[in-house]
Amino acid sequence: MLRGMVDIISRSEWGARAPRSRQTTSWSARTEFIVHYSAGPPSQTPRQIQAFHMDSNGWSDVGYNFLIDTDGKIYEGRGWLVVGAHATGHNTSGIGACFIGGNGDATPATRKAIRALYDEANRKAGRTLKIRGHRDVGSTDCPGDDLYAWVRDGMPADGAGEADGGGGGSGGGGQVPPWPGVYLSYPPITRHPAVSTWQGRMRERGWSLTVDGAYGARSRSVCSAFQREKGLTVDGIVGPDTWRVAWTAPIT
């Protein structure tokens, strides 16, 4: 078992074959976290997926960096810093995390594990990686509509996505707008339509903030204060969790 902030079942524990070759990269080159599904039954094993990739596809190893099952178990694939074979043009920049199953098979435990793996990747990288579904970087249905809806919403830590209705809580704002996939930060000033959406929501919550579509020093200050109030990581950046909580947390 590989122990860090998350427990990962090592290659030796699940009986992985030795790779034919391997190419490593660095954390400075890692910029994104890409979610996949195997599109097969949840009963598949990492060994079966590796065998298909090596024997049928002719690859050097299983294509993904990590695999996650319906019980929320995380299996080491190629690992953190070995270049994968999961998304053409994004194998060096992207960490590939594959759910073992098809559309609609992912469980709350699956989502919780993927989110924990993503948080660990950010911790190791020392910065926030972009969240992607495979279909964001290639012509594919992967990772399925169900899991992709959650990915698109920023992979909320509670496992809920747009399909779960969002919102809730006394004084909350109803359904959460889809996560825009853009981190709002300063410096430099971030200019994006999502900035106005977030600024407008913060004004609704009672914060003194001009809705101008420019995320600058004042927006960062409000964000940090809001994060501190709600027990979030205080970094002054509107990421998936801060975005979601702006709509779901009770207004106090």
Score class of each variant (00 low, 15 high):
M1I: 13
M1N: 14
M1D: 13
L2V: 09
R3A: 13
G4Y: 15
G4C: 10
V6N: 08
I8S: 08
I9V: 14
R11D: 10
R11I: 09
E13F: 07
W14N: 06
G15N: 07
G15H: 08
G15L: 08
R17W: 08
R20K: 08
R22E: 13
Q23L: 11
T25Q: 04
A29P: 02
T31G: 03
T31V: 07
F33A: 01
F33Q: 01
I34L: 09
P42H: 09
Q44W: 14
Q44I: 04
R47H: 05
Q48V: 00
I49T: 04
H53F: 07
M54I: 09
D55P: 02
D55L: 07
S56G: 04
D61S: 09
D61Y: 12
V62C: 14
G63W: 13
N65M: 14
N65Q: 15
F66G: 08
L67Q: 13
G72Q: 11
G72N: 12
I74M: 13
Y75V: 11
G79I: 11
W80S: 08
W80K: 02
V82K: 10
G84Q: 09
T88H: 10
T88D: 03
G89H: 03
N91Y: 02
N91H: 00
S93R: 06
I95L: 07
G96Y: 05
A97D: 01
C98A: 07
N103F: 03
G104Q: 05
D105Q: 03
A106V: 06
R111S: 03
K112W: 03
A113R: 08
I114M: 14
Y118C: 06
Y118K: 06
D119E: 15
N122R: 13
K124N: 12
A125V: 07
A125S: 11
A125T: 07
G126F: 14
R127H: 09
R127L: 12
R127T: 06
T128N: 12
T128P: 02
T128E: 12
K130L: 15
I131K: 13
I131D: 07
H134N: 13
D136F: 14
T140S: 15
D141E: 14
D145Q: 15
L147V: 08
L147D: 11
R152K: 15
G154A: 10
P156R: 05
A157D: 08
A157Q: 10
D158K: 04
D158R: 04
A160N: 07
A160Q: 09
D164C: 01
G165N: 03
G172L: 08
G174C: 11
Q175N: 09
V176R: 03
P177I: 06
P178L: 12
P180D: 11
G181Q: 11
G181H: 09
V182M: 14
Y183L: 14
S185M: 13
Y186L: 06
H192F: 10
H192E: 11
A194D: 10
S196V: 03
W198A: 03
W207G: 01
A214C: 00
A214N: 02
G216L: 05
R218P: 02
R218Y: 01
S221T: 05
C223T: 12
S224D: 06
S224K: 05
A225L: 12
F226H: 02
R228V: 00
E229L: 09
E229D: 11
L232C: 03
T233C: 01
D235G: 01
G236N: 00
I237A: 00
I237Q: 02
T242L: 04
T242W: 02
T242C: 06
W243I: 00
R244I: 03
A246G: 01
W247Q: 08
W247T: 01
T248N: 09
P250L: 15
